[in-house]
Amino acid sequence: MQLATDSAKEVKKQKKRNWKRWSIHLFPIPALIIYGLFVVYPLFAALTYSFFDWNGMVRGDFVGLKNFKDLFTLEPFSGYFWNAFGHNILYFVLQMIFQNGLAFALAYIIFKKIRGAEFLKISYFLPRLLSVIVVGFLWKLILNPNYGALNVLLEKIGLGHLQEAWLGDPDTALIAIILVNSWYGLGFGVLIFLAGFQSIPKELMEAGKLDGATGLAMVRKILIPLMIPSIMIMTVLTFIQSFEAFELVYAMQGSQGEPYHSTDTLAVYFYRLAFGGSTGGSTTAVGLGSALAVVLFLFISIFTGLYLKYMQKKQVDM
């Protein structure tokens, strides 16, 4: 009998230990349920649209990969695709420079404890509090060629010859929008990088100093490797956001990426195909739109995956 209860106790203990070990697998479950139900399920249900023929909003026959073929071979669709794709790449590159580069530098300056750090942090972050629609409206007014603050300002400081129809000239429109996006996102970058700088153990910085590293060398050899987590976060985020760039373009230049498609991005193009134009002047092409979303998804996921793999290896190497 004694033996039996002992072993029963043992089993109970074992069970408890097992439970403790297994319970960890419950941790991601709540997130998975909500995310799976409201994001993954609807998106993948919609992705199947790309394999069907669509007659307006009514689903027709299964057509295999025809929509994908059309997207890349049929004019004007293929032309629009590559045009928008190029803009997305430019979007990413300029965001990395103007938003993240600047944010890194500013976070470093604040980290170096200059006076007014509080004020600076709040200032950089304030634009991020606004809704994108507000941002779009606001900058449309500032960049207005006749009444806008920027051109008036240029006039006043004697640089009148630099005045431009910023959002109407295809040479400046996209860059203007990317800069507005950087203005909007700068503060968030500063916060992430600052959190990164502050997570660096002090000893490592001291060690670097003892080794005689100064200035840029210090940044390159010590800071950047230690900043990999936050650099990784910002790069992945910027990459995804650049290729999903939609709201600001839509708010400022409409669903055609005006003027003359010079601000068109893949996500705006997708919206145009899937939902018609913004003023209701167009019919829809749901199949093509979904096919575009699939292509966009594959592209982003492959590059993000490769990048993450590379960064992880780098982190392990350290």
């Binding site: 995310y35 993954v40 399920y41 609807p42 998106l43 992705l47 992945v236 999903e244 979303a293 996921s301």
Partner: peptide
């Protein structure tokens, strides 16, 4: 774990507007 991490990231890679009709029905 890596797959799980990536699975979570996937949600950012598609315009959520794409799924608006299934979402509405849900």
């Amino acid at each position: 774990n890596n797959m799980l991490f990536f699975f979570f990231l996937m949600g950012m890679m598609l315009p959520i507007k794409l799924g608006i009709v299934p979402l509405f029905i849900l």
